[in-house]
Design a protein around this nucleic acid. Structure first.
Lengths: 191, 191
DNA sequence: ACTTAAATAGGACAATTGTCCTATTTTTCT
DNA sequence: AGAAAAATAGGACAATTGTCCTATTTAAGT
């Protein structure tokens, strides 16, 4: 029962703290306090802090993959899929307004730290990119699918950053509406 | 001659290091090494690390204001002004691809640190916002000037983040072209 | 030239960091 | 029940952190 149980608790606590406080600003002591284990106990589950980070990134990748599959299962059309993506800005607004986008902020931090796991963290972006690209392809935008995917990715990324800085829900709603309009115009063009 | 000279050197070194390494990951020792002064000497110029940060933010605000004025001086039309703004993505590409947008990344970091200077750092965003809004107003977009300003702000912000993550100049160029097109369509509508 | 103030160096300080070691307890499997 | 393995606690360790103190040197103003 305790098989890998504590390990999982550590990963979950670290995942949350890395997001809310940043990777570097989160210490072993911080995680230990949440999980309620002694600091020394860490070494049995993770030899270094970087190993925890790698585990956190892996779970984020898995969670993202599951979420993308779920969106496809729940949506009848690629348009609906894309709107599920756009909607996360509002779904996760309470977190975004305080801590920004979990994907973008981690990538930015690791870029500045010149951290060896930077590439791994970027994979989450790639997951979204490929998935979005696929949706656009299904909207018969075969030629420019990747460009449209990257465009939507950066658009939403920027809205998360600015929404966080200005703490302005009204603005985020406005941009979400614009994205949906943009999407509608896009699918009308070719359908 | 040495009047505030060292102080200025400290600010410049900190400005650069805060951008490239992040605020928290930059230590007094790091700055001291660049400026070539003893660590103890800091206390004479800045009592705390936060004071250095405030000074850095102030110079960034000043530099930004100057840049915006310069853009207006050099540009004949508001369209040209807006294109100067869009072009920084390419002008500063070598830095952006390594360390992201200096404004956005600092705001994100301070948000996670729950730092008291977060609001000050956000002022740089506000400077751009107001300036962009003014340009759009001059394009006779009086009603939606602020919305357009925020839209361009988040767009470019997202491109900086994704450009940094994927290290993809081709993509950035593509988005810059799209922004220019978007701008052209916008000014044709009302002119 | 002399006094006063500014600037600098060097180091002390407690606190915190990531890492690692060694006992002890708990669980698991036979 | 007993042996082997996994999990946990507690603390040692050197290194680094931001902060702060006290001399000494340099510059400025009269």
């Amino acid at each position: 029962m305790t098989q890998g149980h504590t390990r999982q608790l550590i990963i979950e606590a670290a995942d949350d703290l890395f997001y809310r406080q940043g990777f570097e600003h989160t210490s072993f002591a911080d995680i230990a306090e949440v999980v309620k284990i002694s600091r020394g106990n860490f070494y049995h589950h993770f030899k270094t802090k970087d190993e925890i980070l790698d585990a956190v990134i892996k779970t984020r990748i898995n969670r993202t993959e599951q979420m993308l599959v779920k969106w496809e299962d729940e949506s009848a059309t690629p348009e609906a899929c894309l709107k599920s993506y756009i909607r996360i800005l509002l779904t996760n607004w309470t977190m975004i307004k305080e801590y920004g986008c979990p994907v973008g902020t981690l990538c930015s931090e690791l870029a500045k730290l010149n951290h060896s796991s930077k590439k791994e963290a970027n994979k989450v972006f790639t997951l979204f990119r490929i998935w979005l690209r696929n949706q656009f392809k299904q909207l018969s935008h075969t030629e420019d699918a990747d460009m449209l995917a990257m465009h939507l990715l950066s658009w939403s990324q920027g809205v998360a950053t600015l929404g966080n800085a200005f703490d302005d829900l009204q603005y985020v709603k406005q941009e979400v509406d614009r994205m949906c309009d943009w999407l509608d115009r896009l699918s009308k063009k070719t359908t």
